[in-house]
Simulated scan of single mutants.
Amino acid sequence: MNTPSRESSGTLWSAIVRQTAHALACGALRRIQTRLVTIEDGGVRFLIRQVSSLERKEQHAQQRKTESPSNRAANPFLPCEPDLFVADLSDTHLVLLNKFNVIDHHLLIVTRRFELQENLLNPADFRALFDCITQFESLGFYNSGPAAGASQPHKHLQIVPLPLDESAPHLPIEPLLAAARNDGAVCTVPGLGFVHAFAALDEKLADRPQELARIAFDTYLRLLDASGLHAVDVDGEPRQSAPYNLLVTTRWMMLVPRSVESTEGIAVNALGFAGSLFVRNDAQMQTITRLGPMNVLQRVAGTIAA
């Protein structure tokens, strides 16, 4: 039986805005300043953000490890920081603000008990995700472990509001998606040269989030299968057979198997495959300009055979 959402439909966005104001005022939320550059490549207007203060996040994480006797004690989600708490979703999940946010109102959907990030997603994860992304225009995503860009071992999905940039009304990759099949069948998107599996969802179900979540979970299993990934039983829990990134909206889903975490020092997480990449400094900006963003994605995910 589905566990009902504790956050009433339509109220989440106001809770996000309210808690963001509080967290900024008390210093719990630490915005990371960026410089935005756009690069056109392969029919996609990529957003490249140069993240000038990413080191603060890494220093904070290292400090927690130093202060704590074990990795579990260093877990920022158990217990969560109260000033970052947004809402209870269910008996299994809650919503937090992302402490070090590059994009405003960046959210984390976190399991209440410890689960590994490498565990496969389950129906409760999808119910929690769709309880949120059906309330405001947004992109959900999942980095399934360190090789896919995850910085914490505790299972967490993420959400960013759309658009990612005020100059464009859609995700950077969305113009290419019009050429993909829209019947729900698993396919690849013409023009996306990196290895992936794509499937459309019925956006008319956005006002029925639990039904859409059930369909999305079934779609997720088909995307895994199409990508050659499967469950590996570890101590009674289904663990992934290889790392991947997952992108989810109320209209479509895309799964990208990962081969490596980075190329030439440029790390890529799920947002990269939506067309939003991050670099640390001028040298990496020059590298991504030289290689081309699509080539960077192909290097970390593999290239579709011609």
Rank of each mutant, 00 (worst) to 15 (best):
P243N: 06
A283F: 11
A168W: 07
N245F: 00
R290T: 10
P161D: 10
P153W: 00
R251S: 15
D218K: 14
A168F: 10
F130P: 01
C132P: 08
E67W: 02
D282I: 08
P172E: 10
D88S: 14
R18N: 15
L116T: 07
Q19R: 15
A74P: 03
A213H: 08
H196K: 02
P76Y: 00
D104N: 13
I103F: 09
T250E: 07
L121I: 10
A301C: 08
H156W: 15
Q158F: 13
S138Y: 06
T287K: 14
G292A: 08
G272P: 06
I133S: 04
F114N: 09
S167I: 05
P146K: 13
F130S: 00
V232F: 03
A168E: 09
Q240W: 09
R30W: 04
R251N: 10
R239Q: 14
H154D: 08
S68P: 03
G275M: 09
W252R: 03
T263M: 09
E81K: 00
L297M: 15
E261W: 00
S241N: 11
A87N: 08
R35A: 12
V248S: 09
I109C: 07
A178P: 06
M1K: 08
N245G: 05
E137W: 03
G149I: 02
S5V: 02
G43V: 00
A15Q: 11
R72W: 00
V160R: 02
R214N: 13
A206H: 13
R56C: 06
A306N: 07
E118Q: 11
E81G: 01
E166H: 10
N71T: 11
E7H: 05
H230N: 14
L89P: 01
G228E: 07
L107A: 06
L89V: 12
M1C: 08
L164W: 05
K65R: 15
A305K: 12
K155R: 15
V51S: 11
P76V: 12
T38V: 05
E211S: 06
S227R: 07
M254C: 09
Q240R: 14
L89Y: 00
E67Y: 00
L97V: 06
G191F: 04
F136R: 05
P172V: 07
E81F: 06
T20N: 12
L12T: 01
R208D: 07
A197R: 15
I159C: 01
A61H: 07
L176C: 11
D165F: 13
E203Y: 03
D233V: 14
T188A: 15
G236P: 00
I103H: 08
S90M: 10
Q117C: 06
L120K: 05
E137I: 00
H22A: 12
T289N: 02
E115Q: 09
I16H: 03
F278M: 15
R72M: 05
T303A: 13
S276D: 14
L84R: 02
D125W: 01
F85G: 06
V51I: 14
L107C: 09
I215A: 10
